Simulated assay, not measured.
Amino acid sequence: MSEILKERFVVFIDILGFGAMVRQAARDPDGDMANRLAAALKVIEDLGQSRGDIVFPSKSNSDFHSHAFSDCIVMSVVPSAEVVAELFVVLAKLTLDLMKIGVWIRGGMSHGLISKTRTTPWGPAIVEAYEVESKLAINPRIAMGKSAVEFVNRAATGVQKDDRLVRDDDGVWSLEPFVWVRSDAREKLPYLTKEKARRIKSELESAHEGVVDSPRIFSKIEWLRERWDSQLKPKDGVPIFDCRTELGIEQDSIEDWVTAFETAFKGED
């Protein structure tokens, strides 16, 4: 066994559009964007400084490591199916907590070797996670590299991944951050509450309206808005509330029109 490297499941995350947010905050140091950035970085900093027994209270064997710098955070845990499944929940909570204040994140996941040191982590698995974030994820999602997909397929059960991971239209596997819409919505105290969902909806709408000079950023917000709407649409009473954006509500009208059209012409050549 190496004295320097060890096998870990790794996540690299950063804030989408951080540079533009900093420039906007600099123009008004006491304004909304400066406060928003400070709040987001505090969330990331707190997670970066947290002990494993706090982040994973039910998993004493997580050996959780984290290192935050600027708008980025690197996290790693032991490559155990149970611990990695709990890590997905931690990442989903982080995604929702930041969306609530209008901050979107992107990340990459990998499985492999990293250094044993906590202070300055390095290793091929960190390089892979960074490259997945910067080259594969593209949209505001936490994408899985090939090594992460292989680990999950080999080690995890259906219960540990079915409601936590999704394969997107481009073939990339990523975290499903709105897991509580399906799996936790019937609990008495779901993490994605109606109040939190309303705030996220408001931030998505505001970002969609506010991005007028960056087609690249606009396409990412549009992607996230569509993802949000697809999961927040009530189905069989889950969730018990509807906090989709206007795009999602409008989609209902389109679907109703298509259904009515198909019904009216059913059976005709």
Rank of each mutant, 00 (worst) to 15 (best):
I4L: 15
K6C: 08
V11Q: 13
F12M: 01
L16D: 06
L16P: 01
A26H: 08
D30F: 08
A39F: 00
L47A: 10
S50Q: 13
V55P: 05
S58E: 13
S62G: 03
H65A: 13
F69N: 04
D71P: 03
M75G: 03
S76Y: 05
V78A: 15
S80L: 07
A85G: 09
L87V: 05
L91I: 00
A92Q: 07
L94G: 12
M99Q: 05
M99V: 01
G102C: 05
W104R: 04
W104Q: 04
I105N: 09
G108K: 00
G108Y: 01
S110I: 00
S110A: 10
G112K: 08
R118G: 04
R118H: 08
T120Q: 14
T120M: 15
W122H: 07
G123E: 07
E128V: 07
G145Y: 05
K146G: 09
A148V: 01
V149P: 05
E150F: 07
F151M: 14
N153V: 01
N153Y: 00
A156S: 15
G158L: 02
V159G: 15
K161S: 09
R167H: 05
D169K: 12
D170S: 11
G171W: 08
S174M: 09
F178T: 06
F178C: 01
W180D: 15
V181H: 11
R182G: 05
D184W: 15
P190L: 10
L192T: 14
E195K: 02
L204W: 03
S206K: 15
A207T: 04
V211S: 09
D213T: 07
F218M: 10
R227D: 09
D229N: 02
Q231C: 13
V238S: 04
R244F: 02
T245Q: 05
L247S: 15
G248H: 06
G248R: 03
I249S: 00
Q251F: 08
E255R: 12
T259S: 03
F261D: 01
E268L: 02
